[in-house]
Computed example of a mutant assay.
Amino acid sequence: MRLWSLHPEHLDRIGLVACWRESLLAQRALHHPTGGYGRHPQLERFRAAPDPLLAIAGYLAGLAAEADARGYRFDRTRIARPLPAGVDLVRLVVTTGQLDHEVAHLLAKLDARSPADAARLRAATVRAHPSFVVAPGPVASWERT
């Protein structure tokens, strides 16, 4: 499971679709935490949020917004607790070290499957997913390096 902290604009088509699918699995695991992905390390940051289901809903909404911008149609009805109008995203913290790690990880994938997207990422100013606030720090403790 890979729930990217990077802004979904940095993902290629395969990465965006995979992240949507895995985020839906994460939503299910947060709702029913026993077995399977329920204890997956990437879910720690969502479980630590005051409202984990609202946090993953905001994350999914960010992916869906990127899909909309690309002309894809992700089924937003699959978001268990859509953000009510006027409610801000649950903002999670991601460190600069974690973002750097994820950029390197994504570049390795893109170099193999989509060199044009890898070049685009290398030239980009890297941003975090809208659900995250960036803070200085190392790679996250839950990350498998």
Score class of each variant (00 low, 15 high):
1 M>Y: 00
2 R>Q: 03
6 L>M: 05
8 P>M: 06
11 L>G: 09
11 L>A: 05
12 D>M: 15
13 R>P: 08
14 I>W: 12
14 I>S: 13
15 G>W: 04
16 L>H: 14
20 W>P: 01
21 R>N: 13
23 S>D: 03
28 R>D: 15
29 A>R: 10
31 H>D: 09
32 H>W: 01
35 G>Y: 11
35 G>T: 02
41 P>N: 04
44 E>I: 07
48 A>V: 00
49 A>R: 15
50 P>L: 04
52 P>S: 02
53 L>M: 09
54 L>T: 12
56 I>N: 05
60 L>C: 04
60 L>I: 01
61 A>R: 03
63 L>M: 08
63 L>T: 01
71 G>K: 07
77 T>G: 09
79 I>T: 01
80 A>N: 11
82 P>D: 10
84 P>F: 02
84 P>W: 03
85 A>M: 07
85 A>V: 13
87 V>N: 11
87 V>R: 15
88 D>V: 04
89 L>G: 10
91 R>Q: 13
91 R>M: 12
93 V>H: 13
94 V>L: 01
94 V>G: 02
94 V>I: 06
98 Q>A: 06
100 D>E: 11
101 H>T: 01
102 E>H: 10
102 E>K: 09
103 V>K: 06
108 A>E: 14
108 A>R: 14
110 L>N: 02
113 R>M: 10
114 S>D: 15
115 P>A: 12
116 A>S: 07
120 R>A: 15
121 L>D: 00
122 R>T: 09
125 T>Y: 14
127 R>F: 03
129 H>R: 10
129 H>V: 01
132 F>S: 09
134 V>D: 09
135 A>M: 14
136 P>M: 06
136 P>N: 09
140 A>R: 14
141 S>Y: 08
143 E>L: 10
144 R>M: 12
